[in-house]
Computed example of a mutant assay.
Amino acid sequence: MENTSFWFSSELTLDTFVIPPGGKYPIFVFGMAIYLFSIVCNLTLLSLIILKSNLHNPMYFILFSLPLNDLIGITAMLPKVLSDIVTETNKVDYHLCVLQAFLLHMYGGGVLLILAAMSFDRYAAICMPLRYSSVMTSRVVFGIIALVWGLDFVFIVSFFILQTRLPRCKYVIMNVFCDNPSLLKLTCGNTAINNIVGLFNTAVMQGGPLLIIIYMYVQILHTCVMTSHTDAWTKAVQTCGTHLVVFLFLLMNTTFALIAQCIPVL
């Protein structure tokens, strides 16, 4: 009967923040500053791509997805976390928790897919400069963008659909925010299928784009090496520099996140 009541309960309990006395308001102000700065920067970039006609080309059309994806991720995370900190509450509605987890996973899965699409565009621009306009047509570009968001949506939805077959018998989220692994721990029954599908989807979503990015940049490097003109190197740096910086920042953030998860264990 107790387990059954958990299934019908719509309120979940999140893990609590450990904040020193008097620290919640400085943390809230700092977090809001980061959130507003990110919103302004991403909206500015989106507006420039929309309003500036000279930016209406394949590279910027694909780049448009990156700040849009960032807005989804930071909006799904920071407002709820900051609200919990300043109000000192750790309750969340189950449906809101699922929505937050879905958006966070959409954000995480979309980053590498978008970067992979950007690497293909840079490959076409540097390795096939004479055929670039015929390769990266409007139809191809919007097809790539639709494929990126479509794959991201399908893979993430499959995570959550599999959970509907399992009853929920717990109500405590062992995390300060909602994600799919935390929600899966609330269910009862055999979760082997969920774990297998989750590992497979994660491997495809993370490994596939990473292999594409590495392959494309190896081809770009090979083209630059085989070309004796310094213009090729200059063009490669100008067109790929920003993309590589974003990719390196992503790797750094992922590494720090993994280290942060391992520190408590150590």
Rank of each mutant, 00 (worst) to 15 (best):
M1E: 11
F6H: 11
F8D: 09
S9C: 12
S10G: 06
E11F: 04
L12H: 05
I19L: 05
I27P: 01
A33V: 14
Y35K: 07
F37E: 00
S38C: 12
I39S: 03
H56M: 02
M59E: 10
F64I: 03
S65M: 13
L66N: 03
D70M: 11
L71Q: 09
I72R: 01
S83Q: 12
D84F: 02
E88K: 09
T89C: 07
T89H: 04
K91R: 14
Y94E: 11
C97P: 05
F102G: 02
L103P: 06
G110F: 02
I114A: 04
L115P: 01
L115D: 03
A116M: 03
M128F: 15
T137S: 14
V140K: 10
I145P: 01
G150F: 10
V154W: 05
V157T: 14
F160N: 05
I161T: 13
P167G: 12
C169Q: 11
Y171N: 15
L184W: 07
T187V: 07
N190P: 08
T191D: 04
I193W: 06
I193K: 09
N195G: 13
N195A: 13
G198H: 02
L210M: 13
I213F: 12
Y217E: 01
S228F: 14
S228M: 13
H229Y: 08
T239D: 04
T239H: 09
T242L: 12
L244E: 00
V246M: 10
L250D: 10
T254M: 07
I259S: 05
A260T: 08
L266D: 08
